[in-house]
């Protein structure tokens, strides 16, 4: 069983100090800089950590890297029998406009992942954190880690200052494609632009629920703006954005292409075909209907066989269980694909 989405957040900025150049440690101390900001998972919000492990996660003496490694081993890997766990760290270096600091922070997080996580448990795989707001700096970070065993993808926040299909971002995606690694686009981000196309919402609820629309906008941008025509080998997994919206997006994108494809002449096939070829989705959150039969209809509509990959999304609160297993409604043949075959193929695992 392969879990594609477990979060290994940095407990305290100080944990990164051993991996930061002394200049930036001094600068950080002198300026009281507390690290990147983001609205995506505020510590106190209920969904950020499942209520049953909140004390284990933030409690006195437990908010450190070693304790979090043990927590994931004890509450997810061992009980579910996970053989490979892909770690997705949401340290939002793109929220730091000071790009040199952002780049050093990314290097520090990646080194910390290598030494504190990959070395701690051979089941772990890590994601390369990059200053994605500056493709030049991001490319350097990708090249630094792309051949390091244990790093299996490049992580990008779904919220960005321009959509990822825009050609300003080509340096970044060229490096990802050249590395042979997939990109993972995950929930959240802090680019300093509103998280909707109609301005800033007032509640966390709106930002959280509304993240699905940002995922949709990114898929649309990457397909229509020809990212996969420029980099045909590029593969993307969408983490923690829900997937039940996929059929409606595919239909709408197909329909628009019928009428407006002279806008984007490089798009030679149905947009839905591009989506099914290049994108995968993590399982949680399910955003499920009350009626499981309707969920099966959705799977049929999106032809989901190859598209879904199992995830617990630990420690985020998605289901009743701390580490939700495979949902009851999932047919047996799909179960094996989702939990094993799809992620094994996507990450080229032995």
């Amino acid at each position: 069983m392969i879990d594609c989405d477990i979060h290994n957040e940095v407990p305290h900025l100080e944990e990164l100090y051993p991996y930061l150049p002394q200049h930036w440690v001094d600068y950080t101390e002198e300026s009281s800089f507390e690290g990147p900001d983001a609205n995506d998972y505020p510590e106190m919000v209920a969904t950020t950590v499942h209520p049953d492990v909140r004390d284990d996660y933030f409690g006195d003496g437990r908010c450190n890297t070693a304790a979090r490694v043990r927590l994931i081993q004890d509450r997810v890997l061992d009980p579910l029998g996970i053989s490979v766990a892909v770690l997705n760290n949401a340290f939002r270096v793109p929220s730091i406009h000071a790009v040199d600091l952002a780049a050093s922070m990314a290097t520090a997080v990646n080194t910390w992942q290598q030494e504190q996580w990959l070395a701690a448990d051979k089941r772990f795989r890590a994601s390369i954190i990059v200053p994605s707001h500056n493709p030049v700096a991001a490319v350097q970070e990708i090249r630094r880690w792309q051949n390091t065993p244990g790093f299996v993808q490049v992580l990008l926040p779904v919220r960005s200052h321009v959509p990822y299909g825009v050609r300003n971002m080509d340096l970044l995606f060229e490096a990802i494609a050249d590395s042979g690694l997939p990109a993972a686009i995950n929930f959240g981000g802090a680019p300093g632009v509103p998280p909707t196309g109609v301005g800033w919402p007032q509640t966390y609820y709106e930002i959280h629920a509304g993240m699905a629309q940002v995922f949709q906008s990114q898929v649309m941008s990457m397909v229509y703006e020809g990212l996969f025509d420029r980099y045909p080998q590029l593969r993307i997994v969408l983490l923690e954005g829900g997937f039940t919206w996929a059929p409606s997006l595919m239909w709408r994108m197909n329909k628009e292409w019928k009428g407006l494809r002279h806008n984007v002449p490089w798009v030679k096939n149905w947009p839905a075909d591009y989506i099914r070829t290049h994108f995968r989705w993590s399982l949680q959150p399910l955003d499920a209907p009350d009626d499981p039969d309707q969920m099966l209809e959705i799977l049929d509509m999106m032809e989901a066989d190859e598209l879904l990959m199992f995830s617990t999304d630990f420690p985020h609160w998605q289901q009743k269980e701390i580490a939700p297993g495979v949902p009851d409604w999932m047919p047996e043949d799909l179960r094996r694909k989702v939990c094993f075959e799809n992620p094994r193929a996507f990450y080229s695992l032995e």
Binding site: V198, E206, S217, M220, E225, S248, E256, L260, N263
Partner: peptide
């Protein structure tokens, strides 16, 4: 400001198709 939750895209087809995401943001609000 930008017409998506990740800034502005490039082409009319995105402006046009992307209206569905703006509607969703409005319903949510």
């Amino acid at each position: 400001s930008g017409i998506t939750g990740a800034g502005s895209p490039t082409y009319y087809i995105e402006d046009h198709a992307g209206m569905a995401q703006s509607f969703q943001s409005q319903v949510t609000s």
